Amino acid sequence: MTGIEQRQTIFETRLKKAGLRMTQQRRLILSVLAQADDHPDAKGIFTRAFAHDPTLSLSTVYRTMKLLETQGAIERHAFEDGVSRYEHADQQHHDHLIDVESGQVVEFSSPEIEDLQRRIAAELGYELVRHRLELYGRRIETGKRRSPG
């Protein structure tokens, strides 16, 4: 079973567990979402699914996304642009860098940042239970890039 098929199965299981019927439109939305390798918003999911079923409504997409979020199958991110974007909840922890000009969302992981966050929390008398890091930036022109550190 591929990763996409596994995600779709997880999505379907979560909706059935919530007592919902698995309609063709819901199955299509789940398929589009399972195949997404970006951070689509509801309108983006709708556009991709609508190409396969022009009877689909945007409200069906919104309801389905809300249900998946409630069931813990997806995570909703509200970046600075105010648009809710979604990603699969089955991913390893990672952070996000958002391009302020294009809106592109770049995922990254940094053991150093994770360690620093845990240390800061501990110094303040806390144990981290969850966190989210969002960086906002503008692409540096090729000739002006500096190496990190």
Rank of each mutant, 00 (worst) to 15 (best):
K17N: 15
K17L: 15
K17Q: 15
A18K: 13
A18E: 13
G19I: 12
R21H: 11
Q24C: 04
Q25A: 06
R27P: 00
S31C: 08
L33P: 00
L33C: 01
L33A: 02
L33E: 01
A34S: 12
Q35W: 07
D38L: 10
P40I: 04
P40C: 07
D41Y: 05
A42F: 02
A42W: 00
K43A: 10
F46K: 05
F46I: 07
F46W: 11
R48P: 02
R48G: 04
A51I: 06
A51G: 10
A51L: 12
D53M: 11
T55F: 09
T55G: 09
S57H: 15
S57E: 15
T60M: 14
T60G: 10
T64F: 01
M65V: 05
K66A: 08
E69Y: 01
T70N: 07
Q71D: 05
G72V: 03
I74D: 00
E75W: 07
E75P: 00
R76H: 03
H77G: 01
A78V: 07
A78P: 00
D81F: 07
H88E: 04
D90W: 09
D90H: 10
D90L: 13
Q92S: 12
H93P: 14
H94P: 00
H94D: 04
D95M: 13
L97K: 05
I98E: 00
I98T: 01
I98L: 05
D99P: 01
V100F: 06
E101R: 15
E101N: 15
E101Q: 13
G103P: 00
Q104M: 08
Q104H: 09
E107I: 08
E107R: 14
F108L: 04
F108R: 01
S109K: 10
S109V: 10
S110T: 03
P111L: 07
E112Q: 08
I113C: 04
I113A: 05
I113R: 03
I113D: 02
I113N: 05
I113H: 06
E114Y: 03
L116S: 10
Q117K: 11
Q117P: 03
R118D: 07
R119P: 01
I120D: 06
I120H: 08
E123G: 13
L128G: 04
V129F: 10
R130L: 09
R130N: 14
R130F: 10
R132S: 06
E134T: 12
E134L: 09
G137N: 02
G137V: 04
R138F: 07
E141I: 06
T142C: 06
G143V: 12
